[in-house]
């Protein structure tokens, strides 16, 4: 019981530290891509900037639109932030460093992180703002369609490892990483694209589409409620990067260094790629996004699944 409590506190501390680091890092990456400096004033190269931002957001007035659906509007930020935190329960940081090694780990993570869409949809509906409503609708459509190729690409890994448990999947990669198989490479690509859509990041950030819907579902949120969405987004980013590390890049396996270091460096490298992509590409349109999911990604994922099955049975 005490161990559980300590693990919980450690995970929560890690989540907030990681989210803050990611916010700072994203700002730095974007700044350097755009030949700027980014935050430079608070602390060394602005490392304390997220803390300053958090203080600012805490002190801000919490504005509620007069016509908002009170309860839904109030609950939405929690739905956005709680599922990604819960997903940490099955993320393997090291050989025994996992909050709880569920035997259905990957299924659990997928199921939990799908709840996020409800938070976004609630925010869109509860704000009683037309832009937000459009954002919420887009988000629902997008996440539902991208979950299918995402799960199909995960199943290829599960078929290799013969288990749904995250630790077993990592152990199955003790000799060589999954990414080295050609069919796994394809699965990793499908997963990367689908996961980008899953966490609403550019080029698939249509729910918040800044230039069309102002800020989409979180237009009306201010102060700490907005910060909740922000933390939720970055925690989600960490989760999908951690999953891709576990599934395709050998998890915590690696020579010389301790497993945690390997796991975190791989994860943050994956995150860097997501950031790099975000600051490079234009946004896709909503119908193109759906067409891409159903006409390209899903068939590829199915074919890949069939090939994997055939390779395993051979």
């Amino acid at each position: 019981m005490l161990m559980m409590l300590i693990a919980g506190i450690a995970v929560l501390a890690f989540i907030s530290a990681s989210a803050m680091f990611l916010i700072w890092w994203e700002r730095k990456v974007s700044a350097h891509i755009q030949s700027r400096f980014g935050p430079m004033r608070v602390g060394w190269h602005g490392v304390l900037q997220p803390i300053a931002d958090a203080v600012k957001l805490l002190l801000k007035e919490d504005i509620r639109p007069a016509e908002a659906d009170k309860l839904v509007w109030w609950l939405a930020p929690f739905f956005a932030v709680v599922p990604p935190v819960m997903a940490f329960a099955a993320i393997p940081f090291g050989k025994s460093l996992i909050p709880k090694d569920l035997n259905v780990g990957i299924l659990y993570i997928m199921a939990i992180s799908s709840v996020c869409v409800i938070g976004i949809f609630m925010a869109g509906w509860g704000s009683n703002n037309k832009y937000s409503l459009l954002g919420g609708m887009r988000s629902a459509a997008q996440i539902v369609s991208y979950e299918i190729p995402m799960i199909l690409s995960m199943i290829t890994v599960v078929m290799h490892a013969n288990s749904l448990s995250m630790q077993k999947i990592v152990e199955a990669q003790s000799r060589h990483w999954n990414i080295l198989h050609p069919n796994m490479l394809l699965a990793a690509l499908v997963y990367t694209i689908a996961a980008t859509a899953e966490v609403n990041r550019a080029p698939f950030d249509i729910p918040e589409a800044e230039s069309e819907l102002v800020a989409g579902f979180h237009t009306e949120y201010s102060g700490m409620k907005f910060a909740m969405f922000f933390i939720g987004e970055y925690t989600n980013l960490f989760i999908i990067a951690a999953i891709s590390t576990t599934l395709f890049f050998g998890g915590w396996h690696g020579p010389f260094l301790p497993p945690v270091v390997w796991f975190l460096s791989k994860t943050y490298l994956c995150i860097f790629i997501w950031m790099w992509v975000r600051w490079t590409f234009p946004r896709a349109r909503v119908d193109q996004l759906m067409a891409f999911a159903w006409k390209v990604l899903t068939p590829i994922a199915f074919v890949n699944l069939a090939i994997t099955g055939w390779l395993l049975l051979k």
Partner: peptide, 11 residues
């Protein structure tokens, strides 16, 4: 964009 990462900031 990666190439531009290594150009010193102009601001």
């Amino acid at each position: 964009t990666l190439k531009n990462c290594f150009i010193p900031a102009i601001t």
